[in-house]
Design a protein around this nucleic acid. Sequence first.
RNA 1: GUGGGCUUAGCUCAGAUGGUUAGAGUGCCAGGUUGUGGCCCUGGAGGUCAUGGGUUCGAUUCCCAUAGCUCACCCCA
Length: 423
Amino acid sequence: MKIQAPKGTRDILPSEIHRWQYVSRVFAGLCDSFGYKEIRIPVFEYTELFQRGVGDTTDIVQKEMYTFDDKGGRSVTLRPEGTAGVVRSYIENGMYSLPQPIKLYYDITAYRYENVQKGRYREFHQFGVEAFGAAGSEIDVEVISLLHMFFEKLRLKQTGLNINSIGCPACRKAYHEKLKDFFRPHLSELCNDCRNRFDKNPLRIIDCKNEECRKFIDGAPLLLDNLCDECRNHFEGLRSGLDNLGINYAIDPKIVRGLDYYTRTVFEFVSENGGSQGTICGGGRYDGLVEECGGPSVPGIGFALGVERLLMELDIQGVAIEEPPAPDIYIATMGQRAVDLAMQMVYKLRGHGVQAETDLMGRSLKAQMKYADKKRFSYTIAIGDDEIEAGKGVLKDMRTGDQKDVSLDSIVDRLKNQVNQAK
RNA sequence: GUGGGCUUAGCUCAGAUGGUUAGAGUGCCAGGUUGUGGCCCUGGAGGUCAUGGGUUCGAUUCCCAUAGCUCACCCCA
């Protein structure tokens, strides 16, 4: 069998790594400004965590998890998302007894076994934020404003914010009954999935794409119109908070979010460039999740942002990402004495933060110059026996082609100053 | 889980109505006399024509299956 990357995985190659590093850097910098601290969580967890934390009825748990038994016979699962692990860590490390709110961010890979297509992989990258302990809508506004500013910093346009409220267990329960009453007469005409949802989570029938089901859905009561007073106030608070910051949004009563743990606020950032994988980022409030996972009753809110989709969108919109800087200096050598000297020189230069290289393959001067050109070095120095005798090297500006003799004694200091000044 | 398209050198792609050593461009390596890049010229390496089976005197070319890629459905980041 030919060895190749598993389906749905891909290498991020040196030629594109700067794009990934760039968005990670911007995200981390912004989280820092907002007071969110990075957390690093395990790639795998005990399977029960996701069953409880993500929800038994979700597609993720039912059919998309990478689950296996370890050698001790414990069932473990590659994380399909970040929230559950962060919640587990919050509880396990007693973060509820630290000053609240606890504001965390992460930059992770996640794993889901599903068919791949554009913008969807089996191993994918997410940026995420989770905030614990604050029940009011102000933190919702803060989290959404962080995303808003992130897209602004990246100069990403054509990305719309949609918000909705899916209520709390109390008003959702009342609404579920209302929904069931509405769908019950048509139950036999709904698709299999929806008949299943009818008992487990009737809310998700609203989100069904099936033609037959849609006919009935259009007239169905909306949760947004059936919120309890507290949830309604929370939603109003979110809206006025967004208005206060001048952040535009649309209300989309159809947003349900596929994960069971959400309460009240749900939102997503969607590309306006169509595409079935247009959701760049999704998130919401999960006030019951910490308790569900065995912790105290602590509210929470967070989001996950698909980095592959973000980069794709940056590409579609033609947003330029700065190329990595050209390396500084290549030292070309002729003869063993020159090689020894060059090895000393690049070692010193590198210690001072100068990007320096020399020949490692015993190649001709011409081949070395070609290499330096292809790797876009700004300068070269050529050294041979003659130069060593004279104590000089030939410094060449690769852009202009200008050459001049320079003293080998002072050259390292001069270059290091010159390069560091330019930076 | 379902359906369509695709799979020839590192990369982008030609091509043969089935017939001896499968091509281009680009990239890589080396040369174009004495120690120097970018242009140009020459040469070289590099492909079991995705994998497995079938039909055939003969298959990379036809048929089937499998895998992968890709797009879409479902769902989601």
